[in-house]
């Protein structure tokens, strides 16, 4: 990861409210979600089960449901809630200019 400024992924408005989009960060696929409560979450983009595209999954303010076989993952921690391996979660936020930022992995 790249210093304290982190990766700027793009404008928040690229992601419709309540949906997710996939980004590439340092060659890694990351699914970023814009929750209905206004916050954002970022986890690894592929379901560990069969590689389902998590950004295409449905979410609420806590979890994402993989569209392939409906496995459920906690958006904040990446933890599987249905017996699969966990996802990686990334610290993510929105800048003053409404840009999505993935922070470096040192604790913010």
């Amino acid at each position: 990861m790249n210093g304290l400024r982190g990766h700027r992924l793009g404008p928040l408005d690229e992601i419709p409210v309540g949906e997710g989009r996939t980004y590439t960060v340092d060659g890694e696929m990351v699914a970023v979600f814009r929750l209905r409560d206004g916050s954002v979450r970022a986890v690894s983009a592929l379901c560990p089960h069969r590689g389902g595209p998590l950004a295409d999954g449905q979410i609420d303010n806590t979890v994402v449901v993989c569209p392939m076989h409906l496995f459920v993952f906690d958006l904040a921690t990446g933890c599987s809630l249905s017996g699969q391996p966990d996802l990686t979660s990334f610290p993510v936020g929105v800048d003053a200019d409404r840009t999505i930022v993935i922070y470096p992995e040192v604790s913010p």
Partner: peptide
């Protein structure tokens, strides 16, 4: 949502 094609690469600053 998948790496089927090259995704928009985010420039690293």
């Amino acid at each position: 949502s998948l790496p089927l094609v090259v995704l928009p690469q985010v420039p690293v600053r």
